[in-house]
C-alpha cells in the first residue's frame, strides 16, 4: 500500500528559552520563580523541586508567589513580577 501525505493534528510545544537560560547559568546564575497554586501541598512539592534543583543548578535568586485559587490564572501583577524577576518559573497544576 502506498503512503499518503497527511496533516499533523498536533501543535508543537512552544520552544523553551534554553539559550538564554544557558547563558545565565554560565554567568550570573539562574533566577527561579515559584508559582504556588494554593492547593494543599503545592508549597511543599515546589520547595522539594527547588531544593533538588539547587543541587545541580547555579541558582542566584528565588522568587515565590502564590495565587489564591488553583482554578484561576495568576493575577497580572504576579505574572509581571515573575517575568521581570526570574529566568524560569516552576508552576503547579491541579493537585
Amino acid at each position: 500500500m502506498t503512503l499518503q501525505r497527511c496533516v499533523s493534528p498536533e501543535a508543537p510545544v512552544a520552544a523553551a528559552a534554553t539559550i538564554a537560560l544557558g547563558q545565565r547559568a554560565e554567568g550570573t546564575g539562574i533566577r527561579i520563580g515559584i508559582l504556588d497554586n494554593s492547593k494543599a501541598n503545592a508549597d511543599h512539592l515546589l520547595q522539594f523541586l527547588l531544593d533538588a534543583a539547587g543541587g545541580s543548578l547555579p541558582i542566584s535568586a528565588t522568587v515565590k508567589r502564590r495565587k489564591p485559587a488553583a482554578s484561576r490564572p495568576a493575577a497580572a501583577e504576579i505574572v509581571e513580577d515573575l517575568a521581570r524577576e526570574t529566568d524560569f518559573v516552576l508552576s503547579a497544576m491541579a493537585d
Binding site: 502506498t2 501525505r5 497527511c6 499533523s8 498536533e10 508543537p12
Partner: peptide, 10 residues
C-alpha cells in the same frame, strides 16, 4: 517540520 507526515491509508 512536523506539520506533515506519511502513513498508510488503511
Amino acid at each position: 517540520p512536523g506539520a506533515a507526515f506519511e502513513a498508510e491509508d488503511d
